[in-house]
Design a protein around this nucleic acid. Structure first.
Lengths: 162, 162
DNA sequence: TGATATATGATATAATATAACATATCAATC
DNA sequence: GATTGATATGTTATATTATATCATATATCA
């Protein structure tokens, strides 16, 4: 079961693993994995794509789990704050974390054409960035790394046009 | 005259160089460096910090150069599109480019404490990111790299509290 | 049980950004 | 110089994203 980049994978297991991991981590750390928080993570994991806050809120509303913006933003703050989800700054949207539990320096590959998003590890790039920053006297605590471009599927599609 | 990171520099020359460079590039490329566009770049260069679209628009309005949001967003689109300014996705704000004319892969260092922003070159990090993306079959055309952390001045301030 | 911290509900509004259409300006050509 | 086409600006309206604030509920623990 792989969960890297644009590869296909066993998505049922992927969703289950994401939720299970969050559950476990929350239990360990004494965090409350409440119904709203759980459901938001589940939605993100299930759709497996970048979703906007209001799109997520629409789901919650339909399910009677909350109807006002603060509900979703609080849930997202929790999930992002504890590393269960990430915010894509470029899209003002959110994705479930693909490497739950791993200490990671995530980078995102965002397809301009179809909006597919992949999370990859970027330890190397992150380290070089840290070095360059350090040389300028700056101490980095978090790096936003988002690559815009074309995913494999869209490259193929444009190579072989109708 | 240095214009790197958080170093001090001759700011008058820095502003002049930024405008001059944009002027030259526009002339070469047949682009219209109109009064609004010029003034927005000048504001960004003068303040030398991240500014929001509406903050910039307030200046334009005070000067009779435009009063509605589309005016500033169009000017910013032009400046960002041609590399004269950059958008900081993390802040939803804009800065003048510090390396005008240079073919560059900019990265930004953003101080959480005082919002100071420095633009550095990140060729190395960008290259590693490109490699990692390539391994996933993804073709990068642009990378957003923004480091959140603490600038030199704020580090000193917190080392030696009152 | 009562005190405290944490989470949710609800109202209002702030901040950021774009769609759509009208008008003006500029540059090239007839 | 008038015509045209491309580019830029003006203007109105509205969409999208996000937060402040205060009230209420729920959980935890002394």
């Amino acid at each position: 079961m792989r969960q890297l980049a644009f590869d296909t994978h066993d998505h049922h297991r992927c969703i289950a693993a994401t939720l299970k991991s969050a559950e476990t981590q929350c239990a360990k750390a004494g965090l409350h994995f409440t119904p709203v928080r759980r459901r938001v993570l589940e939605l993100l994991a299930t759709e497996h794509r970048a979703m906007g806050a209001y799109e997520l809120l629409d789901h919650l509303r339909a399910e009677g789990l909350g109807s006002q913006p603060p509900v979703i933003y609080r849930a997202l703050d929790f999930l992002v704050g504890h590393g269960f989800a990430h915010k894509l700054e470029r899209l003002n949207a959110f994705v479930a974390c693909c490497h739950p539990g791993a200490d990671h320096s995530p980078a995102f590959l965002i397809c301009r054409n179809c909006d597919a998003v992949a999370e990859i590890r970027a330890q190397g790039a992150r380290a070089l960035l840290g070095d360059a920053a350090h040389a300028a006297g700056f101490a980095v605590d978090r790096a936003v790394i988002e690559a815009m471009g074309t995913c494999p599927a869209c490259q193929q599609a444009s190579d072989a046009p109708a």
